[in-house]
Amino acid sequence: MIKIENLSRHYQMGPTTVKAIDDLSLKISAGEFVSIVGPSGSGKSTLMNIIGCLDSPSSGKYTLAGEEVAGLSRDRLAEIRNKYIGFVFQSFNLLGRESAVENVELPLIYAGIPPKERRERAMEILKRVELQGREFHQPNELSGGQRQRVAIARALAVNPKILLADEPTGALDTKTGEQIMELFRELQSEGVTLIMVTHDPDVAAQAKRVVQVRDGKIVVDLPVGEWIR
């Protein structure tokens, strides 16, 4: 599903070059549930942005679902994001003026799906994340966990290949966080590939595989059982 080879991402900060990702290689297969962990500044966010096609590498190769992504145009990357990737953010990133179902419809608008079909699909997915009865509530009328469920529903709306979650439980209490992780496990069992970025070892341990990043390089890459030890 994801094949990253000798990938680097450099930023120019005045006179110095910052190597956010330095000659990194990584493979993730379809249906995996992977945690990417590391302290802040380790390069895990940059890695996530590149995997999510929000950023382009300075050098190296990135193949997503068989398609070479490195060096594509902005518009092509937007299409790939729309088609292959679902984002779940720490702060939910819902549009505050729109109802839950309208938020879920957003990626479907850009996929060119007509209004009626859009609404049907969004309603169905909201049911999948157990939000029936909350479809027409605005985000500020929902609890944190419910908001994150709306965000997950939105990420799932276009049937993405990958669900990319950035600290998905960071803004939630432990119990709600647990419920979200439970949902992720269910999704994985349904065949969704999950990649989760976190700095919390307990959350990371919920995945099946843990990739630890430091100074732009992978330092540990183990199945979760071995990583905990």
């Binding site: 999510g52 929000l54 902005r74 518009d75 937007a78 299409e79 994001r81 729309n82 088609k83 984002f87 990133n93 819902l94 549009l95 957003l106 990626p107 850009y110 996929a111 939105r154 276009v158």
Partner: peptide, 16 residues
Amino acid sequence: TREIGIRMALGAKSSD
């Protein structure tokens, strides 16, 4: 700005 970022992440092109 944030709304624009969200829309772009969800697949909005520059032209959208």
